[in-house]
Amino acid sequence: MLSLTVSIRQQRLSVMQGDECLVVYPVSTASAGAGEQNGSGCTPRGRHYVRACIGGGLPSGTVFVGRRPTGEVYTPALAAEYPQRDWILTRILWLCGLETGRNRGGSVDTQRRYIYIHGTPDTEPMGVPRSHGCIRMRNADLLALFDQVQPGTPILIEE
Protein backbone atom coordinates (compact mmCIF):
# COMPACT_ATOMS: atom_id res chain seq x y z
CA MET A 1 0.00 0.00 0.00
CA LEU A 2 1.22 3.50 -0.88
CA SER A 3 1.81 5.94 2.00
CA LEU A 4 3.40 9.34 2.48
CA THR A 5 5.83 10.51 5.15
CA VAL A 6 6.54 14.20 5.73
CA SER A 7 9.65 15.13 7.70
CA ILE A 8 9.34 18.62 9.15
CA ARG A 9 13.00 18.63 10.19
CA GLN A 10 14.25 17.56 6.75
CA GLN A 11 11.57 19.49 4.80
CA ARG A 12 10.81 16.55 2.55
CA LEU A 13 7.94 14.29 1.57
CA SER A 14 8.67 10.62 0.88
CA VAL A 15 6.38 8.37 -1.14
CA MET A 16 6.56 4.88 0.33
CA GLN A 17 5.46 1.48 -0.97
CA GLY A 18 5.66 -0.63 2.16
CA ASP A 19 9.24 -0.15 3.43
CA GLU A 20 10.56 1.00 0.03
CA CYS A 21 10.98 4.71 -0.67
CA LEU A 22 9.86 5.37 -4.25
CA VAL A 23 10.58 9.10 -4.47
CA VAL A 24 11.41 12.07 -2.24
CA TYR A 25 10.17 15.61 -2.86
CA PRO A 26 11.34 18.84 -1.18
CA VAL A 27 8.56 20.66 0.67
CA SER A 28 8.01 23.74 2.79
CA THR A 29 6.14 23.34 6.07
CA ALA A 30 5.10 26.01 8.59
CA SER A 31 7.42 28.86 9.46
CA ALA A 32 5.89 28.64 12.96
CA GLY A 33 7.13 25.04 13.32
CA ALA A 34 5.25 21.94 14.38
CA GLY A 35 2.02 22.05 16.38
CA GLU A 36 -1.61 21.12 16.30
CA GLN A 37 -3.50 24.00 17.95
CA ASN A 38 -6.08 25.83 15.84
CA GLY A 39 -4.83 29.31 14.91
CA SER A 40 -1.19 28.43 15.61
CA GLY A 41 -0.02 28.52 11.99
CA CYS A 42 1.90 25.31 12.72
CA THR A 43 2.12 22.08 10.73
CA PRO A 44 0.31 19.28 12.60
CA ARG A 45 2.17 16.09 13.50
CA GLY A 46 1.07 12.49 13.65
CA ARG A 47 -0.95 10.06 11.61
CA HIS A 48 -3.25 11.50 8.94
CA TYR A 49 -4.92 10.47 5.71
CA VAL A 50 -5.88 12.22 2.48
CA ARG A 51 -9.52 13.23 2.95
CA ALA A 52 -9.98 14.71 -0.53
CA CYS A 53 -8.03 15.16 -3.77
CA ILE A 54 -9.06 18.47 -5.34
CA GLY A 55 -8.26 19.93 -8.75
CA GLY A 56 -7.75 16.89 -10.98
CA GLY A 57 -7.70 17.85 -14.66
CA LEU A 58 -7.18 21.58 -14.07
CA PRO A 59 -4.12 23.36 -15.49
CA SER A 60 -0.93 23.66 -13.48
CA GLY A 61 -0.95 26.97 -11.64
CA THR A 62 -4.73 26.98 -11.12
CA VAL A 63 -5.51 29.32 -8.21
CA PHE A 64 -7.73 28.04 -5.39
CA VAL A 65 -9.57 30.01 -2.73
CA GLY A 66 -11.65 28.06 -0.22
CA ARG A 67 -10.78 24.83 -2.10
CA ARG A 68 -12.49 26.15 -5.23
CA PRO A 69 -10.74 27.18 -8.44
CA THR A 70 -11.06 30.92 -9.02
CA GLY A 71 -10.72 30.64 -12.80
CA GLU A 72 -7.28 32.26 -12.55
CA VAL A 73 -3.93 30.72 -13.42
CA TYR A 74 -0.98 32.03 -11.42
CA THR A 75 1.36 34.52 -13.12
CA PRO A 76 3.84 37.05 -11.74
CA ALA A 77 1.45 39.80 -12.86
CA LEU A 78 -1.40 38.25 -10.86
CA ALA A 79 0.92 37.97 -7.85
CA ALA A 80 1.79 41.67 -8.17
CA GLU A 81 -1.91 42.52 -8.27
CA TYR A 82 -2.64 40.50 -5.09
CA PRO A 83 0.55 40.66 -2.98
CA GLN A 84 -1.16 39.54 0.26
CA ARG A 85 -2.55 36.24 -1.05
CA ASP A 86 -1.29 32.95 0.35
CA TRP A 87 -1.18 31.16 -3.00
CA ILE A 88 -2.76 27.70 -3.10
CA LEU A 89 -2.06 26.40 -6.58
CA THR A 90 -2.47 23.44 -8.96
CA ARG A 91 -3.91 20.72 -6.67
CA ILE A 92 -5.02 20.25 -3.07
CA LEU A 93 -4.65 17.13 -0.94
CA TRP A 94 -6.83 17.93 2.09
CA LEU A 95 -5.60 16.16 5.22
CA CYS A 96 -7.56 14.63 8.08
CA GLY A 97 -6.04 13.60 11.42
CA LEU A 98 -6.40 10.09 12.81
CA GLU A 99 -5.38 10.70 16.43
CA THR A 100 -8.21 11.94 18.65
CA GLY A 101 -7.00 14.71 20.93
CA ARG A 102 -3.75 15.14 18.99
CA ASN A 103 -4.80 16.05 15.43
CA ARG A 104 -8.49 15.11 15.37
CA GLY A 105 -11.35 16.79 17.19
CA GLY A 106 -11.66 19.89 19.31
CA SER A 107 -9.12 22.68 18.87
CA VAL A 108 -6.51 20.40 17.25
CA ASP A 109 -8.49 19.12 14.24
CA THR A 110 -6.30 19.08 11.12
CA GLN A 111 -9.26 18.93 8.74
CA ARG A 112 -11.06 21.86 10.40
CA ARG A 113 -7.78 23.80 10.30
CA TYR A 114 -7.81 23.34 6.49
CA ILE A 115 -4.35 21.78 6.37
CA TYR A 116 -3.40 20.74 2.83
CA ILE A 117 -0.58 19.58 0.68
CA HIS A 118 -0.74 22.12 -2.14
CA GLY A 119 1.22 23.81 -4.89
CA THR A 120 2.93 27.16 -4.50
CA PRO A 121 4.60 29.67 -6.83
CA ASP A 122 7.93 28.46 -8.20
CA THR A 123 9.55 31.57 -6.71
CA GLU A 124 8.87 30.23 -3.20
CA PRO A 125 11.80 28.28 -1.74
CA MET A 126 11.54 24.58 -0.92
CA GLY A 127 13.48 22.95 1.89
CA VAL A 128 12.82 25.80 4.30
CA PRO A 129 9.76 26.37 6.50
CA ARG A 130 7.69 29.19 4.97
CA SER A 131 4.01 28.14 5.02
CA HIS A 132 1.15 29.11 7.33
CA GLY A 133 0.68 25.46 8.41
CA CYS A 134 0.18 23.60 5.15
CA ILE A 135 2.75 21.54 3.28
CA ARG A 136 3.78 23.37 0.12
CA MET A 137 5.22 21.63 -2.93
CA ARG A 138 6.52 22.58 -6.35
CA ASN A 139 3.65 22.42 -8.83
CA ALA A 140 5.34 19.83 -11.07
CA ASP A 141 6.09 17.62 -8.05
CA LEU A 142 2.52 17.94 -6.82
CA LEU A 143 1.15 16.93 -10.22
CA ALA A 144 3.28 13.77 -10.13
CA LEU A 145 2.23 13.02 -6.55
CA PHE A 146 -1.45 13.72 -7.19
CA ASP A 147 -1.60 10.93 -9.79
CA GLN A 148 -0.32 8.42 -7.21
CA VAL A 149 -2.62 9.15 -4.26
CA GLN A 150 -6.31 8.86 -3.59
CA PRO A 151 -8.64 9.61 -0.69
CA GLY A 152 -7.63 7.38 2.20
CA THR A 153 -3.89 7.40 1.45
CA PRO A 154 -2.10 7.41 4.83
CA ILE A 155 0.30 10.22 5.73
CA LEU A 156 2.66 10.40 8.69
CA ILE A 157 3.89 13.89 9.56
CA GLU A 158 6.88 13.68 11.86
CA GLU A 159 9.07 16.29 13.42
Rank of each mutant, 00 (worst) to 15 (best):
N38M: 12
N139F: 05
T100W: 13
P151Q: 07
P151K: 04
S60L: 14
G41Y: 02
I92S: 04
I155N: 00
G127W: 12
W94C: 01
T29C: 05
F64P: 00
V24M: 12
P151S: 06
M1S: 07
P59C: 07
V108S: 02
Q11K: 06
R130L: 15
R12N: 10
F64N: 00
V50Q: 00
R91Q: 05
V50L: 04
V73K: 04
R47L: 13
C42W: 06
T110F: 04
L4F: 03
G57N: 06
Y74W: 15
Y25D: 00
R113C: 12
S107A: 09
R67M: 11
Y25Q: 00
V27I: 15
I54V: 02
V50W: 00
G55E: 01
Y49W: 14
A30M: 11
Q148I: 14
F64L: 04
L13E: 01
S3Y: 11
V128M: 14
S28Y: 02
C42N: 05
P151Y: 05
I117H: 09
E159D: 15
L22W: 13
M126D: 00
R12H: 12
H118D: 05
P151W: 08
C21P: 05
D122G: 10
T62L: 06
M1I: 08
G133Q: 01
S3C: 08
S131Q: 09
G61R: 12
P154A: 09
G57C: 08
A140C: 10
V65F: 08
V15H: 00
T43E: 02
L2E: 13
V149A: 00
G39N: 08
H48C: 09
E81Y: 10
P26Q: 02
S28W: 04
G66T: 07
R102M: 09
E81P: 05
L13P: 01
A30P: 03
H48G: 03
P129F: 12
L145G: 01
L93M: 01
E99Q: 13
G119D: 12
H118S: 08
Q150V: 13
V15K: 00
G71V: 01
E159N: 12
T75S: 12
F64Y: 07
A30S: 13
G66H: 09
M126E: 02
L156C: 09
S7P: 10
N38Q: 09
R45I: 11
H132A: 14
V24H: 11
H48I: 04
E124P: 01
R47T: 08
I115M: 13
A30D: 03
W94I: 05
L4K: 01
L143Q: 09
